[in-house]
């Protein structure tokens, strides 16, 4: 584990840059993580995806499955990759403050 400074906050992240404590996430932190995942500016479309993932995670303990994300956010998988070049599982989930996925996923 390592400590890094994002948006003026000392944050503990794992070796792949996922934040360790999902509770400390806020929108400022998301803005700080975004450039690390090749997203220069979080537009309203980005927020739509990030908020959906975040809300889903808080309720269920996991990220939504990809097809569910597409259906419920209204974006195609291609559009999601355009928004988050490092992908939904890595980029979007990291910006939404989720821990690294576990289990046989």
């Amino acid at each position: 584990m390592a400590m890094i400074t994002i948006a003026g906050k000392q944050v503990e992240v794992d070796e792949d840059g996922f934040i360790q404590d999902p509770e400390i996430w806020d929108e400022e932190l998301a803005k700080g993580i975004a450039p690390l995942e090749e997203v220069n500016e979080l537009t309203e479309d980005h927020w739509k995806v990030v908020r959906y993932i975040r809300e889903y995670y808080l309720r269920t303990g996991v990220a939504p499955m990809i097809r569910m994300l597409c259906k419920n956010s209204g974006f195609t998988l291609k559009q999601i990759y355009e928004l988050f070049p490092t992908g939904p599982a890595k980029g979007a989930c990291k910006i939404a403050g989720l821990p690294k996925p576990t289990g046989c996923v």
């Binding site: 309720r59 269920t60 303990g61 996991v62 821990p99 576990t102 289990g103 046989c104 996923v105």
Partner: peptide
């Protein structure tokens, strides 16, 4: 679940 998925999930 090892995935972190809770019963509502």
């Amino acid at each position: 679940s090892s995935t972190g998925m809770n019963p509502p999930g």
